[in-house]
Every structure is written in C-alpha cells, then in structure tokens.
C-alpha cells in the first residue's frame, strides 16, 4: 500500500469524523439558536506556551521536509488531521 492510498483512507476517515462532528454541532446550534448568551469569560491561561509550541512545531515540520523526502508528506497528513481536529472540536463541544 502506497502512501497515496494511506492518505486516501485517512482522508475518508477524517471526512467522516468531520461530518459526524458537524452534524452534532449543527443540532446544538439549532437547539441554542434562541438562547441568550452569557458574558462570561474563562481565564484559561497557558495559551502563550501552547501557542509558542505550535509555532515551533510548524517550523520543525518545514525544517524536516528539508532533511528527508519522507517528511514531505507530513504537511498533507497533518492537514487531514486538521479536518479531524475540527470534527473533534464539535464533539468536544462548548464549555458548560
């Protein structure tokens, strides 16, 4: 099985996860359409470090692409991961 076929399979799984999440998100949005929103913010600190980690991770992925041909595929694989991530974001849902 080539990496192309693996990506096709992973893409199908990520798409499925995306739509499962989207469906759940849409149902929740329709349910809450007339709700009043609350002006609460959560003081969830620590995002500075995770943001820096994200910057370092992206730089590392690009750097790795220059060290071995296999890492050229890392970007596309992570892009599929992004679709799965959005689907997961719906499933995780909002804070209560």
């Amino acid at each position: 099985m080539s990496i192309y076929h693996i990506v096709l399979a992973l893409g199908a799984v990520a798409t499925l996860l995306f739509f499962i999440g989207l469906k759940q998100g849409a149902v929740a949005a329709i349910r809450d359409a007339d709700k009043t929103s609350e002006n609460e913010t959560v003081e969830d600190g620590g995002y500075a470090w995770t943001a820096i980690a994200a910057v370092i991770a992206s730089s590392t992925i690009i750097t790795l692409a220059g060290t071995s041909p296999i890492f050229i595929y890392l970007g596309p694989l992570l892009a599929i991961g992004s679709a799965a991530g959005i689907g997961t974001a719906f499933l995780v849902g909002d804070r209560k």
Partner: peptide
C-alpha cells in the same frame, strides 16, 4: 460565545498551519 473565544483562536491558529 464569550467563554469559547480563547480556545477558538488558539485551535484555529494551530489547525491552520498544516494547510
């Protein structure tokens, strides 16, 4: 929703990178 703003922007930035 106000309590989601921070993590929305963090995850949007992180998940944007691979594109």
């Amino acid at each position: 929703r106000s309590r989601e703003v921070t993590r929305v922007f963090f995850w949007a930035g992180a998940l944007f990178y691979p594109i």
